[in-house]
């Protein structure tokens, strides 16, 4: 049994930290883990995808169409873009933040409307929260990734809040720890 999670967003949003935390949490539980990320060109404000897979034995580091149990998205349009990677009835945890892509900025396309409804019609369960505002409430807009991890932790069975917090303690710099713990908590209770 392998659990497959996609973390998607816009280059520069902090998805690498999220995948690092997720990978460590799974490893601490004694699972085999694989994480795949893409560096380089795609990070310059483009759409970015990270795959995290854990279970008794994990072979492939990537996730295919119909392969994801969960999608964690840092941006609404990006959640919609990858919905076909989700198993039918799979869970999306997304930030409600909208960031205009270049075709929208350049005026050749519109930012789509009713994305949550469209994702639900496509067969996904959607939990959308304003992670940016919650992160600002915790002390920094940069903590929206931790807010989303907090929210996501509610859906993963068998991993306690303490286990998540322990990994965050070992991953983020000490001076930002309290802020990140608060961000995690705000995500759980959003």
């Amino acid at each position: 049994m392998v659990t497959s999670i996609m973390i998607v967003g816009v280059g520069g949003q902090g998805s690498l930290l999220a995948s690092k935390i997720l990978g460590k949490v799974a490893m601490d539980k004694g699972y085999d883990v694989k994480v795949s990320e893409v560096h380089g060109m795609s990070q310059r404000g483009g759409s970015v995808v990270t795959y995290v897979r854990f279970g008794d034995k994990v072979n492939s580091p990537i996730i295919d169409k119909g392969g994801a149990d969960y999608i964690i998205s840092f941006e609404l349009l990006e959640a919609a873009r990858y919905v076909e990677f989700l198993k039918p009835g799979g869970q999306i945890v997304t930030n409600s933040q909208q960031i205009d892509p270049m075709p929208v900025i350049a005026g050749t396309a519109e930012y789509p409307t009713d994305l949550i409804e469209k994702m639900e019609e496509a067969g996904a369960k959607v939990d959308s929260i304003d992670a940016l505002s919650l992160a600002e409430e915790a002390g920094s807009a940069k903590a929206s990734n931790i807010v989303l991890m907090g929210r996501f932790s509610k859906y993963v069975e068998g991993i306690s809040k303490e286990e998540w917090i322990k990994v965050i303690e070992n991953t983020v710099p000490a001076k930002f720890l309290e802020m990140n713990k608060k961000a995690f908590e705000l995500g759980v209770n959003a």
Binding site: R44, N59, D64, G66, G67, L77, L86
Partner: peptide, 28 residues
């Protein structure tokens, strides 16, 4: 894995439907 499964005659995994017509997000 999906590409290899399909090429060698394995059934495709069921998935959520693709949402068409979304604007791309190229790097900038």
């Amino acid at each position: 894995q999906g590409l290899i499964a399909k090429a060698l005659g394995e059934p495709e995994a069921p998935s959520c439907k693709k949402i068409d017509g979304l604007p791309g997000r190229p790097p900038a």
